[in-house]
Every structure is written in structure tokens, then in C-alpha cells.
């Protein structure tokens, strides 16, 4: 017996104004940034597919674990495989930060949705404020590269960062 196709169960409530971007553009941007950064640090390796797949899945179905895995799949290969004095370091710093912000923005949101341009502007301003500090540090790091390892510096640095982290974690929130 021929049957008619079932109607959709309901109709979405939709915003009725301009100045909104669908969330899939943010997802695509996050996936694209992750793919580009992954292609840079995993270039020439057969394992390139792994970070790409993780990045795309993390952009489409974000969860804390996937986001963390995707970011680590970019940070660790950078630390291990990129040569010293790599000139794209400022771009990588900016890209990694952008990816982090986009992932965290998508984390609590449903799969479909919209984001207003004003909200994007707010995000962009905050992003640029942090990048205003991060970019000079990245350039400075480029200049200081190939300095070689120093045990005392490593121990002092790790101790300082660990102490800082413990201070952050143990701090009583207001």
C-alpha cells in the first residue's frame, strides 16, 4: 500500500530579524581552523587523518573530552616536530586561541542555532585583547629561539608554573 510521507513532528521557533549567523558557520570555521593547524603540524604524516577527524567531530558534536583531545593533537605535535625558529609561530598562537574560543563557545549549545553579529563582535574584541599580549610574546619567543635547554631554567620554570596553577586552583572564588 502506498503511503504518504510522515510530516515533521513540529516546527522550530526561529528568530525573526537580521544580524544573525547560523551556528553551522561557527562550526565550519572551527573545523576549518583545526584542519589548517593540523595540516601544518602533521604535514607529511599518514596520521594527519586522526587530528582532522577529531577536529571535525569536535566542531560538530563538541564535548569537553573531544575538545581537549583535538587541542592536544595540535599542541603536542607542535612541541615535538616543528623546527626551532618556525616563522608561523604567531599565526599558530592566534589559531590555537581562536580554536579554543570557538570550541568553548559551541560546547554548551545545541547542534542548530544562531549567533548574533554583536555577540561575535564581543567575542572578537575579547580575543583581540588577549592576542595583544600573546602576539608580542610569540615574536619575542621567535627571537629567543635556539637558546638550548638549561636545567635550572626548566626546574625554576616548571616550579613557577606549578605554583601558579596551584594558586589558581586553590584560590577562593568571590
Amino acid at each position: 500500500m502506498a503511503r504518504r510521507a510522515a510530516q515533521p513532528a513540529g516546527v522550530r521557533a526561529v528568530p525573526d530579524r537580521g544580524g544573525l549567523l547560523p551556528l553551522w558557520t561557527v562550526r565550519c570555521t572551527a573545523a576549518l581552523v583545526a584542519v589548517l593547524l593540523g595540516a601544518v603540524v602533521w604535514g607529511g604524516s599518514a596520521w594527519l587523518a586522526l587530528p582532522l577527524v577529531v577536529a571535525v567531530v569536535a566542531a560538530v558534536l563538541p564535548s569537553t573530552g573531544l575538545v581537549c583531545l583535538s587541542l592536544l593533537l595540535l599542541v603536542v605535535p607542535y612541541a615535538v616536530s616543528t623546527p626551532s625558529g618556525w616563522p608561523w609561530l604567531p599565526v599558530f598562537v592566534a589559531g590555537l586561541h581562536l580554536l579554543f574560543v570557538l570550541y568553548l563557545l559551541l560546547l554548551p549549545l545545541p547542534r542548530h542555532g544562531w549567533i548574533s553579529l554583536l555577540a561575535l563582535r564581543e567575542l572578537a574584541l575579547s580575543y583581540l585583547r588577549i592576542q595583544a599580549v600573546a602576539q608580542p610574546v610569540a615574536v619575542l619567543a621567535l627571537l629567543l629561539d635556539d637558546d638550548g635547554s638549561n636545567l635550572a631554567v626548566v626546574i625554576a620554570g616548571v616550579a613557577a608554573v606549578s605554583g601558579w596553577s596551584l594558586w589558581l586552583v586553590g584560590r577562593t572564588p568571590r
Binding site: 515533521p8 513532528a9 551556528l23 542555532g113
Partner: peptide, 8 residues
Amino acid sequence: GCPADGLV
């Protein structure tokens, strides 16, 4: 009857 939508 619809999946949820997000709005930022």
C-alpha cells in the same frame, strides 16, 4: 516536537 535550538 522539535530538537532544541541555540541562540547566542
